[in-house]
């Protein structure tokens, strides 16, 4: 973190942002659609905990394992594909589980697809792209491996480290 002192921007933003937050909090407490704002508070805490102590550690763990186990030529493509896969699964998971449609079973226009098939289709596109990328890297990096380490690759990066 650079700079310990706060500039003028912070001292303007603090009361302004505080006022906006207070407005939201008062509205939340007084809203008729919310029987007790403790419910929303609990969901806010749960949202934070679910991210900080479940989702983020899992993501860090998967990233760390991938970085250690994967060979160099496919490391970046696989990590990128894992990231995109994770995000797409988050977006589609209610449909995969049928959450939503189960509350309106007589309405076939809610979640109308076979989401297992559609998700696998999308992921096949993602991983095909990653595989093509890895193949290109393998092809371009392959011959360079046996050359002396002093020689730079065409992209200007050193050929070998570690």
């Amino acid at each position: 973190m650079s700079g310990t002192a706060y500039g003028r921007a912070y001292w303007i933003a603090l009361p302004l942002g505080g006022a906006i937050m207070t407005f939201g909090l008062i509205g939340l407490v007084g809203d008729k659609g919310i029987s007790t704002s403790l419910d929303v508070g609990a969901w806010l805490v749960a949202a934070d905990v679910a991210h900080d102590f479940v989702l983020a550690p899992i993501a860090c763990l998967i990233g760390a394992v991938a970085a250690r186990l994967l060979p160099r030529w496919c490391r970046a493509p696989v990590q990128a594909a894992l990231l995109v896969t994770g995000v797409l699964l988050i977006v589609v998971f209610p449909a995969l589980r049928g959450y939503g449609h189960d509350q309106v079973p007589d309405n076939p226009s809610v979640q109308p697809l076979d989401y297992t098939t559609s998700t696998l289709t999308v992921l096949a596109v993602v991983w095909t792209g990653a595989a093509a990328w890895a193949a290109v890297r393998l092809a371009s990096a392959g011959p360079g491996r046996r050359r002396p380490p002093t020689r730079a690759r065409p992209d200007g990066l050193p050929t070998s480290r570690r």
Partner: peptide, 10 residues
């Protein structure tokens, strides 16, 4: 958004 304003200032 209020929290975002504070964070932006900081």
């Amino acid at each position: 958004i209020g929290a975002l304003v504070v964070h932006l200032g900081a």
